[in-house]
Design a protein around this nucleic acid. Structure first.
Lengths: 213, 213
DNA sequence: TCGAAGCGGAGAAATTTCCTCCGCCTACGG
DNA sequence: CCGTAGGCGGAGGAAATTTCTCCGCTTCGA
């Protein structure tokens, strides 16, 4: 692949991620093109349709997340620290942009499914170890962590997005959520309501037939 | 005002809040109309333009938030519990839908400004008391709490939104963030990076001139 | 240096969004 | 219970946005 083509691809994927985050997966491709600073033809030449673009982006992000999961397991001695690191990495990647794709049945691509399986397996291992270590609250599951990372990494509405242009605030708030807002001296927190949310719960929710409205 | 007119207003405001949350303040009014289950004329008859609708919605939500702030201060003995309750209330109201309006200079309506001032004052009091009580981490400011409530109360992307149709999950995650994901036995958390975020910080960020792109 | 591959802009076609007109319906005072 | 003022929804034309292609120019890489 020619160098300039690869450069365009990168710019388009980066722009697509941001636009999908802000406007959802059905955002106008025009916006992506404009944000990427390329001509419309450059996008349409590479991607036959929206789905092709979404799939390429999903693969790109997922493979990076998979790498992050393994790296966290490998490089962090403490099990809870590894979970923490994974959550921060998922937020940095802005997995929220493509989470619906990863969870919904739409994914036909075999490569994607395998990567997803490996990644969620790695995450389960991290969490299991953290539970064993006694550091991670038992009522917290993989789904809770993923949702936390998605919710905190979505761009803020309106002018507020400027508040966190570089992501400092995102990591600050992730840290606060991971550790809690209360001081150490506080009495034991009441157990959070509900059951631990698993990865499978997310998939199940996303898979139910869509009521379009 | 006739009973059916008031009923329509309510339906439109509720729908507008949801649509603005999902698509931002420049979402097509058509969507609101459809979600509200009313005819387009019903919206346009009442509101001369988008701004009028946004203003009415903002006033509606803000006055309810103000009531919640006072109620929290009045009914909760413990200072930290009051903060907690306020954050949950703000999330329930989905203040994120109109936060940009409240923070940006666009608000000309004197009533709105006064209500905003009263509410942020009440919140500051809650937080100050919670800091005094030693329960709330000192590096947490009003802005942090508002952002937390906004971020956790925005709808999840795609099919995931079905996961939390009734808001149970929202409050679960709010609780987790407030108390932290670690167990009581954990060592003292590292201080969160950065300075406490104040309400004024939010306003300042939102007020800077918009770079439209 | 040359050919193949990639690029962006102009713009036609399709779709979405905005907004009004108008005939029917409903709330509510008498 | 009835009259009517006020409210309602749907149809649909105008305007704006979005999609997607053609084509002449530029850039990469052998």
């Amino acid at each position: 692949m020619r160098a300039d083509a690869e450069r365009s691809r990168r710019r388009i994927l980066d722009a697509a991620r941001d636009v999908f985050l802000e406007r959802g997966l059905d955002a106008p491709l025009d916006l992506i093109v404009r944000r990427a600073g390329v001509g419309p033809a450059t996008l349409y030449r590479r991607y036959a349709d929206r789905e092709a673009l979404v799939r390429d982006l999903t693969g790109d992000l997922l493979s990076r997340l998979e790498a992050a999961a393994h790296q966290a397991a490998r490089e962090e001695g403490d099990a809870y620290a590894a979970v923490r690191r994974f959550v921060h990495a998922a937020a940095d990647l802005r997995m929220g942009a493509v989470i619906p794709v990863l969870l919904e049945g739409l994914v036909v691509d075999q490569k994607l499914i395998e990567s997803r399986t490996r990644t969620s397996g790695a995450l389960d291992d991290l969490i299991h170890a953290a539970h064993e270590s006694g550091r991670l609250r038992p009522e917290v599951g993989a789904g809770d962590l993923i949702l936390l990372s998605i919710r905190l990494s979505r761009p803020l509405p309106g002018g507020l997005s400027r508040l966190d242009a570089d992501g400092t605030l995102l990591h600050r708030h992730l840290d606060l959520a991971l550790d809690g807002l209360t001081t150490q001296a506080a009495p034991a927190p009441a157990p959070a309501p509900g059951e631990p949310l698993t990865f499978a719960d997310l998939v199940a929710a996303a898979d139910r037939p869509n009521a379009t409205d």
